[in-house]
Each structure stands twice: as C-alpha cells, then as structure tokens.
Design a binder for these strands. Structure first.
Lengths: 227, 227
DNA sequence: ACCGGATTTATAACAGTGTTATAGCTATGT
DNA sequence: ACATAGCTATAACACTGTTATAAATCCGGT
C-alpha cells in the first residue's frame, strides 16, 4: 500500500523492454543453446541496439543469469503443479516424474540450470566467506525444492522414512539421482526413448527403496505391484 | 606382423604434432573450459598456424571430439586401476568412488564427456537409422564400462543381485546416480566439501541397497556396519 | 636421384562475436 | 522551460572460427 510503488511510464517501458529481451533470448536459447544467443541478433530482433542489454543486465552474462533464474522459476511452477497425493511415497514419485518431464521439455533451460560454468546467481548464493573451493550454490531454500522437502517430511511423519533422517540430505539424494538420469538422457546416452524411460523407473525406484524404512518398503512394494 | 605398419618419418612428425596439439588443447581445456580453447592461441603455443588443426582434426569440432575420446580413455584407465575386490559389492562401491575421484580431479574432461551439445563421436555411436530424436550415444561397449559390468555380473553370480536382472540396466542405474552426484558437486550445488561427500555416500548407498536382493542386502549392511 | 603431383603450411581476408567509448537524444525533476 | 541524468545508437576494438590462396614441403614413380 505504499505509494512509492506506482510505476512511472518510463519504468514501465524499461520493464517491458527487459521482458522483451528475455523472451527473445529464451527463444534463441531454446532454438540452439546458450551459444546461439547473439547480442546483435537479439537487439535487432527486439528492435534496439546491443547497449540495451548492457543497461538492463550489465552484459551478456547478466542476461544469461536472468535466464538461469527464470529456469528455476519454471521448474518451481512445474513442481507446484504436481497434486499432493495422500500417499507421500506416491507424491514423491510423481514429483520425480514431473522433474523429468520438465527437463525433457525444456532441455535448454535445464542445461542452463545445471551448468557449472555459470557464476553463482544471487538467488542461490548462501552467504558464507568463500573458501578456496569453487563458489557453492545452495538450492535448499528455493521454491522449486519446497515440495520435495514437504513430501519427504510427510514420508518421515508416516514412518516410511527414518525418523532421524535429514530431509535435506534425502532431498539431495533424490535430486542427484533424478538429475543424473535426466542429464544422461539429454546428453543422448540411451539406446531409445523407451530404454531411457525404463532406466528412469528402475533407478528412481531403486533409490526410493534404498531410502525407505521396512515399513515404507512394504507400502511401496504394494504400490508397484499393483500396476 | 604386416610390414605396412612401419611409420614413415613424415607420418611420425604428423602424429607428434597431433599429440602436441592435443596436449596443449587439453591444458587450455583444464584451465578454463572448452570456451578457453582458442585455435589461434593454440597454434602459436604449439608453434604452427591454425591450419594445422584443420588438417589434423578437420576443425575445432574435431579437436574437441578428440579430447572427448581421450577423456573416456582416461576414465577407463581410472576404472581399470580399481583392484578387483573379492566382494563384488565392495568392488562396485570402490568403482563408484573412483568415478567420483576422476570427476573431481578432471572437471573439464568430465564436463566434456557428458556435454549434450557435442556431436556423437564415432567411438560411441551405435549404428542405427536415426529416428527423429537427438542422436543416441551408447556407452555400453566402451572399456570404461567393462569393469562396472563385470562387478555387477559378479554380484548377480553370488546372488547379491537378482538372477533375472539386466546388467546393462543396473550399470546404467549406478552410472546415472553417481554421475548425478558428481554433476551437482561440480556445478557447485553443495554447502561444503564434507556435505557433498556425505551426500555421495548416502545416495550411492541407497541406490545400491535398492538394487540388492535380500541376501545381498544382508551382506551389504554387514559391510557398512563394520565401519 | 630426381622431378611432378599431392599434401600441408602460412598468410591474409571474411564474417561473425562481446565489449566499450563517444556523442546525441529522450525523458525526468525542479 | 530548462538543466540534468540516463539511455541509446553508432562506430571502433579486439577477439573468435573458417576459408581462399599461394608458397613450401613431402612422397612415390621413373
């Protein structure tokens, strides 16, 4: 309700152009990867000059970082769209499949998200005096991780996972597994789409079983046998 | 014993320069990633002109492909260096750790290996009339995969894994998991090196448990509890 | 041993790229 | 209405990979 938030016409135009640049850049990204983004072509596409990218994003790197953040937002949206199944284990499985769907349908965005050559965006940086290691980026507090954590906590609450388990570590374990599968699939390491899908099911199922308590295991095998 | 294999002095020189180019390129690769490889700088470093890259590799893409193949060779060497533990389960675990060590010590080579933007090298292409999907690259017959397959088959033989299991699928499952962990770690998605290491142990252990038979599970838990 | 054809090389030009300095314009605030 | 601050367009700079061309080199057959 503060009166200072009224958008001046100039600021309005700035934001419009900013979004136009981002839209065109994401289109170029999806068309041929990050290397296909040319500032010159981007500028002519939007109808301005390359300087606009520098005033809006500080350069090409800033533009890529903005795309990076949008990629995570899209993933978060996709994860939130997964209905909360009353069975936490099935909810988890559905979150995994939704993650794969997102990766396969947005390969360029996905590749951008997990590229190591990117500077750590402020949104994911956890403030800590940097050691000698490469910059660390934490995903734990990002909205795209919340549903995963919720599902895991629900599993713990119902006894399907160990009561003394750390949800963050389990979430990381699931994330790493599902990401590894998507990464290999996107890189083309599979004989066929069916083989990749089967591999996904087997691997995600295995890590799931490995994380469950005997009680949860019994439940889970009831689910899988029912199919 | 065929006499046609004697290397002429000219061919000898060609190969020497080819290796010199590869060495210098790998150095540039490790220093700043694939984008840090400049043909001009590479040529001056080796003491020739950029044309040498075109005659030897057909261009920059061919050079990168050669580096790609060397990366897989190095990984195969690292995997072969793992001693064959009499306990197949422990052998598998050691292969996983060796894989991680390789990835962490050769981040540039590793990133190259699993980059999706690379043309499928002939060494990994399985001949099949390409469908509409992106080109598929198979790793199954590569030397770097052999030890993994051997260890899995040993697990099956001793009853630690299901007799009707497909070793190729299990190998893919383990590979995807370990690769996912390394990929996230190299991308900087971890709070600390210790956290990344713990995550690796938890996740690799979980997928391992999920792949074992009850008999194998009992054995495996005997190993983990002994520590 | 030599010489002719093929191959590899170096040089330079071409078409791109991201970035930056500069000068002009536009739009805002007084 | 004016002065000023910010943004933009233009052009130049330093790069990049690739290619055409001409000179040099190497190789095999006589």
């Amino acid at each position: 309700m503060s009166a200072e938030e009224k958008t001046s016409p100039a600021e309005n135009r700035r934001n419009a152009q900013r979004e136009a640049l981002l839209d065109a850049a994401s289109e170029m990204l999806m068309h041929g990867g990050p290397d296909a983004i040319s500032l010159r072509k981007l500028a002519t596409k939007v109808g301005t000059s390359t300087m606009a990218v520098y005033t809006a994003f500080g350069g090409k790197e800033g533009l890529i970082t903005a795309l990076f953040e949008e990629a995570f937002d899209r993933l978060a949206t996709a994860q939130r769209a997964v209905p909360r199944d009353p069975e936490p284990i099935l909810w988890l499985a559905n979150l995994s499949r939704a993650y794969r769907d997102f990766a396969l349908k947005n390969p360029s965005y996905y590749a951008l998200m997990i590229s190591a050559t990117l500077p750590v965006p402020a949104a994911l940086r956890h403030d800590e005096p940097a050691s000698n290691e490469p910059a660390a980026r934490s995903i734990a507090r990002h909205p795209s991780y919340q549903n995963l954590l919720d599902a895991i906590e629900a599993c713990i609450a119902e006894g399907s996972m160990a009561a003394d388990a750390d949800p963050a570590i389990i979430a990381d374990a699931l994330w790493a597994t599902v990401h590894g599968l998507c990464s290999l699939e996107l890189a083309g390491f599979h004989l066929s789409a069916e083989a990749a899908e089967k591999r996904f099911g087997v691997t995600a199922g295995a890590v799931m079983r490995g994380l469950l308590t005997p009680k949860g295991l019994k439940k889970y095998e009831g689910f899988t046998r029912r199919r």
